[in-house]
């Protein structure tokens, strides 16, 4: 069901990972992604997997939840695996077969890369409240303000989007049920027919999203929102010793990955 999508969800907690400053986590995720793309051998992938597993364990997010986040991406993962299995030249698994050992190995690595990429970024949203996340992002991007980039407005929009994802998902579910009760059919027919069948869902969803946006704007104004000027924060972001250690470990990890790549391992 749609309700199972966990994108952008936050699981409040009190683990080491939860307590790290949002800015630290944002920087570490970027470091992590760069490091991940250095991995070329099984040794490299092994190291990244180990680090990811360590972080997940430290966050006390159940591995099951992590896998649930990967589920919606399954289609892309399978497609990537297929392409790699069938379109990599090398030694055939059996004489005359199109599937090669190299292909299987490439496919496995690609799948692993996607899963690790998703897990790493999801770990960030799972353990960081959206407010902290957007505050962190706003502070990291603050220098761009001098170039007249509307940093506050951008991050505010992002946090609103995150806030309304669960609401809109729930709404989609309701609209689907209502249209099914009127005999709408979403499961049969060709591609064009199926796309057309989505209109009874999409139109009400958009109408309602606009209405929500209107009401939300009025509610925000009523609560004295007037842009980023002069705003304070209840929760001050503060870098502590844990953040320094985490950033140091991140740097070491990236260095190790680059070294592995240089050494051709």
């Amino acid at each position: 069901m749609l309700k199972d999508i966990t994108l952008g969800q936050y699981f409040p907690g009190d683990s080491v990972v939860h307590r790290l400053d949002a800015r630290t986590k944002l920087v570490l995720v970027i470091v992590y992604i760069v490091a991940l793309f250095q991995a070329q051998s099984w040794l490299g992938f092994g190291l990244v997997t180990l680090v990811t597993a360590g972080c997940v364990a430290a966050s006390r997010i159940p591995p099951k939840t992590m896998f649930k986040g990967v589920k919606p991406m399954l289609f892309i993962i399978v497609l990537t695996a297929m392409l790699n299995i069938f379109y990599t030249s090398g030694t055939p698994v059996l004489p005359g077969w199109i599937i090669t050992w190299e292909g299987i190995s490439r496919a496995c690595q690609m799948v692993l890369r996607i899963v690790l990429l998703i897990s790493g970024t999801f770990l960030l949203t799972y353990t960081t409240s959206p407010i902290a996340l957007t505050d962190g992002l706003e502070m990291l991007l603050n220098p761009l303000r001098r170039l007249h980039v509307p940093v506050h407005e951008m991050t505010m929009m992002m946090s609103m989007a995150l806030r309304f994802i669960p609401t809109l998902i729930e709404e989609t579910d309701k609209i689907m049920s209502a249209q099914k009760a009127r005999g709408a059919d979403f499961e049969t027919g060709g591609l064009v027919q199926r796309a057309k069948a989505l209109l009874p869902i999409l139109v009400p969803l958009f109408v309602s999203a606009f209405r929500r946006a209107d009401e939300l704007a009025v509610a925000m104004e009523s609560r004295c929102y007037h842009g980023g000027e002069g705003r304070t924060r209840m929760k001050q972001l503060r870098m502590g010793r844990a953040d320094h250690i985490a950033l140091f470990l991140g740097a070491a990890f990236l260095a190790a990955m680059i070294a592995l790549k240089r050494l051709g391992l």
Binding site: E171, I175, A178, K180, A181, R182, G183, L199, V203, P204
Partner: peptide
């Protein structure tokens, strides 16, 4: 589904057609 008609809470949020006539005719 057509023998047992179900009207959900706040059913106005399911309206989507361009005209009233077409929306009633959807079922």
């Amino acid at each position: 589904k057509r023998r047992v008609g179900l009207v959900f809470q706040y059913p106005e949020y399911q309206l989507f057609e361009e005209t009233v006539y077409r929306d009633i005719a959807f079922g």
